[in-house]
Design a binder for these strands. Structure first.
Lengths: 112, 112
DNA sequence: TTCACATATAAGAAAATGCTCATATTTAAG
DNA sequence: CTTAAATATGAGCATTTTCTTATATGTGAA
């Protein structure tokens, strides 16, 4: 598990974010902590699968964990992550708009 | 191959960045285009492996491709990607510093 | 056309990922 | 102590990733 270069570390972070369900979970935590059961309902994942996602993100320093009685609350550890996401989403939006334009053009061409 | 949700698109991008060699290649293109052979030398990858990385990043819109005679030049398509990387690297730097502090403390404790 | 170089692609194997199902652990209540 | 609820962990399986080796394609020179 010993990572060395900046590229390996960076890749490890990206790998952790390269799963739609994990990104969705992060989004659900955007406005504050949630329990595992709440996240089960929100995500639609099986409890065991969710638990593994949460643990992975926690081990990578993305999530914080807090126990209170029987419940465990998870929360985002660093709001900067959301900033970085914003840049990606902007790129994606730009790309989506391009695709929509292309789709429009194709429709126009096809309808002639 | 049909992606739909923003999470799936975002995850797809992250997946593409979740490989140390690809991140290294992007870094090599930071200051302008390079041919495949130049990148073979810079990256230490086998030519076939490099070619696949380049093709993948191109298909995902991260790289541009330009042919000139026998050579093919690749370049970054969007400088914003480097911005997003910067945010990640900052988080990583912070985490590395923390680790170093912890390592220091451990050394001190151990040397008593 | 033929050759040599630059680049791309195909096939196969090893490793990693993420799911499901089953089981363990922890904690509060009775 | 026993039970029930919340959470975590383990085993097995299908899928994906990435590498290596070998081969194909494309382009300019002779």
């Amino acid at each position: 598990m010993a990572l060395s270069t900046i590229y390996e570390l960076h890749a490890e972070i990206c790998k952790m974010f390269s799963n739609p369900k994990r990104l969705e979970i992060i989004d659900h935590l955007r406005n504050g902590e949630k329990t595992v059961s709440e996240l089960v309902n929100l995500s639609g994942l099986q409890q065991s699968a969710l638990s593994k996602h949460l643990n992975l993100m926690r081990q990578n320093g993305v999530l914080l964990r807090r126990k209170e009685g029987v419940n465990v609350f998870y929360s985002l550890s660093d709001p900067k992550i959301l900033e970085a996401f914003e840049v990606f989403r902007q790129i994606l939006r730009g790309r989506l708009e391009e695709n929509e334009k292309l789709a429009e053009e194709l429709k126009e061409v096809a309808s002639r």
